[in-house]
């Protein structure tokens, strides 16, 4: 068998042949990577370097279009769960009022956000319904209204909420939700404030 045939059969075996456009998915992917690198040349080099280099999870989720096979999904979830750093204090609940501000705030890490001293926001309302007073909420994620009231606010739920915000993919591989702790978008303290917004009985989410 010639080398070319071997490659073709291998690609077929992996289910990666999709030949519209005359190229395999692997070739299209390689070409897309090159095009990507050549299309963000005028901005901040550090930012460019960060998006050019996908981490393993990003690369896998891109490849499988967010629907990884079971073994890949389990590997991602296992490894991401192992990377979660829980607060050393053993406490998960911060201040829900500060949590509400963080949930509203979309500031941070865009190329027009030069002030790195200003903390990043979580932008949670972009995708979730949370406190009932805010009617301008998105629907990409599930509603979190009454989260604590419905789930209970015990330590297991606190730990789950902290972990989910820290690294959503520890619970659902290739979730659309950013890995706020894992990727260094939000600090431990900020995540604790968000956990309080969801679980504190006094938070408007649960009142």
């Amino acid at each position: 068998m010639k080398m070319r045939e071997v490659k073709f059969v291998a690609a077929l075996a992996l289910g990666l042949v999709g030949c519209a456009g005359g190229v395999s998915d692997d070739e299209a992917r390689a070409r897309a990577e090159q095009v990507f690198r050549e299309s963000f040349t005028h901005g901040n080099r550090q930012m460019a370097a960060r998006v050019e280099r996908q981490d393993e999870v990003q690369a896998l989720c891109s490849r499988y279009r967010n629907e990884p096979p079971k073994d890949v999904a389990e590997k991602i979830e296992r490894e991401q769960a192992a990377g979660i750093r829980y607060p050393a204090s053993g406490k998960f609940l911060g201040d829900w009022r500060q949590g509400e501000r963080i949930a509203q705030d979309g500031y941070g890490m865009r190329f027009t956000d030069p002030d790195t001293r200003r903390p990043n926001g979580g932008g949670c309302y972009n995708c979730h319904r949370i406190a009932p007073a805010e009617i301008s909420y998105g629907t990409i994620g599930p509603s979190l209204y009454r989260f604590g009231a419905l789930r209970g606010a015990g330590e297991a739920t606190q730990r789950y909420a902290y972990g989910k915000i820290y690294d959503s993919q520890a619970y659902l591989a290739c979730s659309h939700m950013p890995r706020f702790g894992h990727n260094g978008v939000l600090t431990e303290e900020q995540i604790m404030h968000l956990v309080a917004l969801l679980l504190d009985p006094d938070s408007p989410v649960n009142r």
Partner: peptide, 27 residues
């Protein structure tokens, strides 16, 4: 046709501190 295939790859390409791709919002 090649541009389509490249665009398709980019549409699903997740990157950056928020793991976003086009498909995060438009899927």
């Amino acid at each position: 046709l090649e541009a389509f295939r490249v665009g398709e790859q980019l549409f699903y390409r997740r990157a950056g501190p928020h793991d976003f791709a086009c498909v995060s919002c438009h899927g």
